[in-house]
């Protein structure tokens, strides 16, 4: 029966797909382990720099550094982190939808987008958003240099007055099974009031001004580095989960098809027996 052959090819092709998804899951798991380690190593540095800056901010004149000045919000720059490739479930869709909502709060015409990752860039350019900058195809070689590069170009735009505030949107790595969407104000720098501020009396070398001047850009770079690492780890986690699901689904499908195949085979055999028997019957009839 033609149906038998058809089912057999389907089972074979699904088995192939299952092998691919299994391999992709394994690759994602390996990358996740590495990026998770990176992220954990970066955390103390980011936290300390942040802490130092928080101690300093209440005591300094905001006019000391242009990145500290608070201006009226007219134009907003959105930095949106997505991945370059799909196969990671709703990872990209979630960020994009979330970002879209945030953009509509300030109005499409007041927003300019900086897209990190191909998926976001493609989505927003296609829909007529003002994508002024995009960075793609770097995730696999992600290093601190990228963070420095992105920060430099973003702060330059901010200093030129292109935007009055910069908001970042990314997937934070919560645990392997789940990501958390985060929207953060990147610039201007603000300190959350409720946090405990330890105003230690420091001796500054060479001077308070000089320290603040160099600390602010560094803080921004470190933050950017953290966003990149978080986003990448979250991406890998999402991919791993998605591929795991795909492998399980393929397994289920194979099971169902095999059942169908066996039924069809049974039916074919029954049919054949029926034919032989009725053929034999007919012969006996005629020889009588």
């Amino acid at each position: 029966m033609a149906n038998l052959k058809h089912i057999r090819t389907r089972i074979a092709s699904i088995k192939n797909i299952q092998q691919v998804t299994k391999a992709m899951k394994m690759v994602a798991a390996a990358k996740l382990r590495r990026s998770q380690a990176n992220m954990e190593q970066a955390r103390p540095y980011a936290r300390r720099i942040n802490g130092v800056l928080k101690n300093l901010l209440p005591n300094i004149d905001r006019s000391l550094h242009p990145l500290l000045a608070i201006r009226d919000f007219k134009k907003t720059g959105f930095v949106i982190f997505t991945s370059d490739k799909g196969q990671c479930g709703s990872f990209n869709t979630n960020v994009i939808k979330f970002a879209e909502k945030a953009i509509h709060e300030v109005g499409k015409e007041n927003a300019e987008l900086i897209c990190i990752g191909k998926k976001g860039r493609d989505y927003f350019t296609k829909r007529g958003y003002d994508v002024v900058e995009s960075h793609t195809e770097f995730w696999n070689e992600l290093n601190f240099g990228h963070a420095a590069e992105f920060t430099a170009s973003i702060t330059e735009r901010y200093l030129k007055g292109e935007y009055d505030q910069i908001v970042v949107i990314f997937n934070e790595f919560k645990n392997v099974a789940s990501q958390r969407l985060v929207k953060l104000n990147y610039l201007p720098l603000v300190v959350e009031e409720d946090e405990e501020i330890d105003t230690a009396d420091y001796l500054f070398e060479p001077s308070k001004e000089a320290v603040v001047q160099s600390l602010v850009p560094r803080h921004l770079t470190v933050q950017m580095w953290r966003f990149l690492l978080e986003s990448w780890a979250a991406n890998m986690a999402a991919q791993m989960t998605a591929m795991d699901n795909a492998t399980t689904n393929a397994g289920e499908l194979i099971g169902r098809l095999e059942l169908e195949y066996n039924k069809a085979r049974q039916a074919a055999i029954t049919n054949e027996i029926l034919e032989i028997v009725s053929g034999a019957e007919a012969l006996m009839e005629s020889s009588k």
């Binding site: 001796l203 070398e205 060479p206």
Partner: peptide
């Protein structure tokens, strides 16, 4: 190395923030 030249730290140093 500070931006103004080398500096040393011994126990009991005054609280400081040095570039």
């Amino acid at each position: 190395p500070s931006t103004n030249g080398l500096f040393g730290v011994l126990p009991g140093h005054v609280d400081a923030m040095i570039a």
